[in-house]
Amino acid sequence: MLLLVFQLGSSRYALEAQAISEVAPYARLEPIAQAPAYVAGLFDYRGELVPVIDLRHLVQGQDCNRHMTSRIMLVDYPLPSGGQRLLGLLAEQVTETLKVNGDDFTRAGVHIEDTPYLGDITRDEKSMIHLLRPTQLLPDTVCRQLFAPEPA
């Protein structure tokens, strides 16, 4: 499978390329008042307002740097109520893809309740790469806040 590899701080992470519909540059985001700190803002994506999560803030409590290699990965996020919506994931060093076999992964062997999105680990010649599960990034409460149902 193909992975899109990126960095959060000095650690390397990856998402399955199949889950990503587009990689966009770090465009200007409209901050959302009172949202959790890891919500970077709203991205005006072709007329649709897409909430963007700062992955580095989510994982490490620090904002992504404002480099040209920091980019927004757009994924379809499944809603607890059914259906799916676009979600932007901001990360650093979104520059490379990596082909790996499905059995190249090792279970992390650690389970931390607050980070259900951390998946298995693979490695290349440089370092370990932690796979993220994009569909489990948000607690249901935050998900409901970001994707309010359409008024009937």
Binding site: A27, D44, Y45, G47, H67, M68, T69, E96
Partner: peptide, 24 residues
């Protein structure tokens, strides 16, 4: 790859915002 790993120039985010706010 590292060539792009530098701070955004002035107006970078605004420019991309304009591009992405239009319908494809």
């Amino acid at each position: 790859r590292r060539i792009l790993d530098r701070p955004m120039p002035e107006g970078y985010q605004e420019e991309w915002s304009r591009v992405y706010s239009c319908k494809k």
